[in-house]
Design a protein around this nucleic acid. Sequence first.
DNA 1: ACCTGAACACCGTTCAAGT
DNA 2: ACCTGAACACCGTTCAAGT
Lengths: 211, 211
Amino acid sequence: MTTKLSKDRIVEAALAILDTDGSGALTFRALASRLATGSGAIYWHVADKNELLAAATDYVIGRAMSGVVGGADPREAIRAIALGLFDAIDAHPWVGAEPLQSGMVLVFEGIGGRLQALGVPDRALFDCWSALVNYILGVAVQNAANARHRPQGTERTDALGAIAARWAQLDPEIYPFMRRIAADLPGHDDRAQFLAGIDLILAGILGSPVA
Amino acid sequence: MTTKLSKDRIVEAALAILDTDGSGALTFRALASRLATGSGAIYWHVADKNELLAAATDYVIGRAMSGVVGGADPREAIRAIALGLFDAIDAHPWVGAEPLQSGMVLVFEGIGGRLQALGVPDRALFDCWSALVNYILGVAVQNAANARHRPQGTERTDALGAIAARWAQLDPEIYPFMRRIAADLPGHDDRAQFLAGIDLILAGILGSPVA
DNA sequence: ACCTGAACACCGTTCAAGT
DNA sequence: ACCTGAACACCGTTCAAGT
């Protein structure tokens, strides 16, 4: 007889399936066979598939955030938190599919605390915090969505190239900007661009504009 | 014999189902019975469910963007585009579920063109544009996700109140900021906050910081 | 060309029955 | 208390057969 079944072991097995074969492969039957048990047994430890996905998500986010060092400079800390989340979702694109919320308090607190440390006044705090947090979550989730919906085997650069080619063929009378920006798309660095956006928002909050 | 089946009629029926009963109710069987045909007939006009959802999404976004008036002031135009997308996704929360991309060129072009009109220099254009567009899409999509995953019948304010209550109970040693911000959560105005974030990013791009 | 609807290969979830 | 696995009520998609 093998190790007793537990929620932890189930989540662990789910993570293995999600990371190797994607969210489409996570079925209770696949899970049961990997754990050498019946599919019904899983329901003794986990309410349903939503709870399973939420637990897997929390695990990934929690691990990513625990790896983020405190750091002295609040700006650097904000960048580190943002990049930690970005990389975690990038490495596990299935994370972006369901709503995050629960595991996200660590991110929320981290960003909020640093904004206070940067001296953002009380009246502006809520708006600044929410703008930053929304940007970080939004970009990370969309990045993951792009990775998820890219046909397997397709390189990221190729996929961007295809989009850029489509943009370049748009009617230049109606879409002059798309035509112009298409050239910059394939070569661009996601992470660098993500950080540039954060700096932009921080500049809006603290001064020293970009343009 | 009724009107001939067509992709347009199928998309129209799909929209009706999505808007009244949510994305869970959109099945080929439900669609077929509403159109008084066999489920296989739909496949003659539409490749699969993904194409159907993409077409429905494009329709909603296209209509929302066509309602946005040009306007003289680029800042106002940016706000109008952003709010148009925000409201469209808010009214049809199922839109945020699949990747947008295709219908999004209108938004991309609209924002990009106005940034040029505002005099953003070439070297900063790509980063500024992508930060703004990412923020707008990110917030709109997450807002829709929250609406989608809120138990039906629950009021938005109640749902936010529940989250705030959870935040208020966190350990104040570890989560001082969450405790502080919890009070602001239930009463806040999504749209106003969304606009505040856009102003913040524009301030970062153009100067005149908030703090 | 276009439509019909049964059939196929799946799902998540439940539940009587076992230990 | 915990596990088993067949059974139920669904899906998306296909396809022989019709018009």
